[in-house]
Design a protein around this nucleic acid. Structure first.
Lengths: 180, 180
DNA sequence: AGCTGCAGTGCAACTCGTTGCATAGGTAAG
DNA sequence: CTTACCTATGCAACGAGTTGCACTGCAGCT
C-alpha cells in the first residue's frame, strides 16, 4: 500500500500535523491519492510505531494542541526503498463502465444522463487542473528537480481528465445516434 | 458499491457459477472492474440473501458440483434502480504519481525505470484491448444496443491506456532531459 | 442570540478487498 | 511419476477505506 508512502513524500516536503496533511490531500496530492483525515490519523500512529515519523506536541492559544510530524531517518530509508521497488500498475475501476455495459437494462435515457453528468464533473476538474498549471507552471520548459516532478504529476491528471471527457463525448454521441 | 451491480449486469447477460463469473471478471468486465473469486462468492451469497439472485445446484462428473446463479425479478428491479441512480465519478488513484512526486528522494534513476516499466505494461494492455476491438468490433459504425455498449466500454479502456502511455512518454522524456 | 464553518484530534462500527490456505479429482506436460 | 494447472467452492484473518459521531473553542454572519 501507498498511503504511508504518500504521507512520507508529503512530510518530507514539509513537516505538518495530521490536520494539515488532510488539507494537503484535499488539494494537491489527494488529486492523485485521496485520503480522509481519519485514515491519515490512523496511519500516522502506525507509522510512528514503526519509527518512520516522530511528533512534537505544539500548544496553541484558543485552539486545540497539534502534533507536528517529522520524517525520521528510518522513514527516509523506507521511502527510498519503496520508491525503488517495482509496483503493479494501477487498475482502472470505474462504475460508469459497468453502467454503460448494462445500459440496455436501464430506464431509457438514464445512462445517457449519467454519462453527461460525469462529463460535466470531469470537465470541471480538468479546468481546475489547467488553472493550477497556468498559475504554478507557466514556463514548463525551465523546470527541473522537484518542481518538474510536481508538474509532471499534474500533467498526468490533466491527461487523464482530458481522455475521460473525450470518452464521454464519444459515448454521448453514440448513444444519441443509437435508435435500438 | 458496485460489485453487486457488476455481477447483476454479467449474470443478466448470461447465468453462471461463481467460478465462471470470476473467469469473466478476469477477461472482459474485470478490465474495468477487477474482482477475485473470494469476493464474488461472498457477494453472491449476500445477494442471494437479499433475493437478487437464485442458484440451482448442478452435479458434475469428475469435478465439483457447481451452483448456477440467475438474476431474480427483484435483482432486475435493483439493477434498473442502480443504473438510473447518480454516482460519484471514479477518482484516479495511482501510486506512480506518488513515486514521481517523490522522485528526488529516490536513488538516481529508480523512478525513471519504474515509469518505463509501467509504460511497457500499459502498452501491452493497450495492444490486448486493440486486439479485442479488431476481432470483435471490426465495423463499429453498425453497432447498436448491447453490442454498442460493450464496444463503448472497450473504447474507454483503450483511451485510458493510450493516455497513460502518452503520459509515461512525456515523463520519461522530461526526466531524461533533467540534469538537476 | 444562534448558526455555520474552521482548526484540531479521535473512537467505533462498518464495508470492501486481499492473501493464504483447504479440499477434491481431472488432465497435461516434464 | 511427479509436478503443475484447471474446475469448483469455501473459511479465516487481515488490511484498507468510509461514515457517523464527539469534544473544544474561536470567528464571522444573520
Amino acid at each position: 500500500m501507498a498511503l504511508e508512502h504518500a504521507i512520507l513524500v508529503s512530510l518530507t516536503e514539509r513537516a505538518g500535523s495530521g490536520y494539515e496533511l488532510a488539507r494537503r490531500f484535499d488539494r494537491s496530492i489527494g488529486y492523485f491519492w485521496p485520503a480522509t483525515h481519519q485514515q491519515i490519523y490512523r496511519v500516522l500512529r502506525r507509522m510512528e510505531e514503526a519509527g518512520w515519523v516522530k511528533h512534537t506536541e505544539i500548544a496553541q492559544e484558543g485552539r486545540p494542541d497539534k502534533k507536528i510530524y517529522r520524517v525520521s531517518p528510518a522513514g527516509r530509508t523506507e521511502l527510498s526503498r519503496w520508491l525503488a521497488e517495482p509496483e503493479d500498475p494501477a487498475v482502472l475501476r470505474d462504475g460508469l463502465g459497468v453502467k454503460l455495459r448494462g445500459a440496455s437494462l436501464a430506464p431509457p435515457g438514464a445512462v445517457l444522463r449519467e454519462v453527461q453528468r460525469h462529463r460535466a464533473e470531469h470537465a470541471t476538474r480538468l479546468e481546475l487542473y489547467r488553472g493550477i498549471q497556468r498559475r504554478d507552471f507557466p514556463k514548463p520548459a525551465k523546470l527541473n528537480g522537484r518542481d518538474l516532478h510536481q508538474y509532471l504529476v499534474l500533467r498526468g491528471g490533466i491527461r487523464a481528465e482530458e481522455s475521460f471527457v473525450a470518452w464521454c463525448d464519444e459515448v454521448i454521441d453514440a448513444l444519441r445516434k443509437d435508435k435500438s
